[in-house]
Simulated scan of single mutants.
Amino acid sequence: MTTPNDRAVLNHILNPLLPAEVSGEDDPIVEEESVDAPANLAEVKRLEIEGVKAAEAKQLDEAVSLLTRAVDLCPTRASTFNNRAQVLRLRGNVEEALNDLNKAIELSGGKGKAACQAYVQRAMVARLQNRDADAKADYEKAAEMGSSFAKMQLIAMNPYAAMCNKMLAEVMTKLQRGEPTDQELDHAG
């Protein structure tokens, strides 16, 4: 069994171009509730959960309706904007989704789970729109917040890092199988 520190060291070896982590990436991103949370927060959360469930059931119109009601009840909750953005993106309403993602980042102050997810979603949209510099900036922010998906996307966007990781993975696979590596074959000949 490995410790978080062991995983961080291995992650740094396998992904040298990413920031090193000491705490381990399995640490959850904690979403803090606002001190001035509305009295109807339970209803807002209920609508948000129902909206997410509707989206998972591919009832996208119903999901947008539920999430919009939640936004109307509490227009200061970042996670609701983030969740609605995902549904809007799935419906093909990219500009509306970007507006909600920007709002989620603004409301969260760029911190917490909702911000992390919004950065990832916004980066995905930027990649689809061939705005790789914007995507990279958002993936970097999400990666700093602990998103392993964002870290993997940063690697995928860096051809040199991807090539190094592929070569290292091939060497490790050969070693695990007991096969000689290319370097060992060069020295043997």
Rank of each mutant, 00 (worst) to 15 (best):
152 M>S: 11
159 P>G: 10
168 L>F: 12
145 M>Q: 13
157 M>V: 07
144 E>W: 10
155 I>G: 09
162 A>Q: 12
145 M>V: 02
145 M>A: 14
133 A>Q: 11
163 M>Q: 14
132 D>W: 10
156 A>I: 12
143 A>I: 00
154 L>Y: 05
144 E>C: 09
166 K>D: 10
146 G>L: 04
141 K>C: 10
160 Y>D: 05
143 A>N: 07
147 S>P: 01
147 S>T: 01
138 D>Q: 07
145 M>P: 04
148 S>N: 07
152 M>Q: 13
135 A>I: 01
143 A>W: 10
152 M>I: 08
146 G>E: 05
148 S>W: 03
136 K>M: 06
132 D>A: 08
144 E>F: 11
142 A>Q: 03
149 F>K: 07
161 A>M: 11
149 F>R: 07
164 C>R: 14
167 M>N: 13
141 K>F: 12
137 A>I: 01
134 D>V: 05
146 G>H: 08
147 S>F: 01
154 L>W: 09
143 A>C: 08
143 A>L: 01
142 A>G: 04
147 S>E: 02
154 L>P: 05
169 A>V: 06
132 D>L: 12
153 Q>D: 01
137 A>Y: 03
147 S>C: 03
158 N>A: 03
138 D>P: 07
146 G>N: 05
154 L>S: 04
169 A>W: 08
142 A>W: 05
147 S>W: 01
147 S>V: 00
142 A>P: 03
137 A>S: 10
154 L>G: 04
158 N>F: 03
166 K>G: 09
160 Y>I: 07
133 A>M: 07
151 K>I: 01
161 A>W: 11
141 K>N: 13
133 A>S: 11
159 P>L: 12
152 M>E: 11
134 D>T: 04
156 A>T: 13
144 E>Y: 12
140 E>R: 12
152 M>V: 08
150 A>R: 04
166 K>L: 11
154 L>T: 05
162 A>S: 13
146 G>A: 06
164 C>E: 14
159 P>C: 09
149 F>A: 06
167 M>K: 15
143 A>P: 00
134 D>K: 05
135 A>P: 02
158 N>E: 00
160 Y>A: 07
147 S>A: 03
141 K>P: 09
158 N>P: 00
159 P>E: 15
156 A>K: 15
153 Q>N: 07
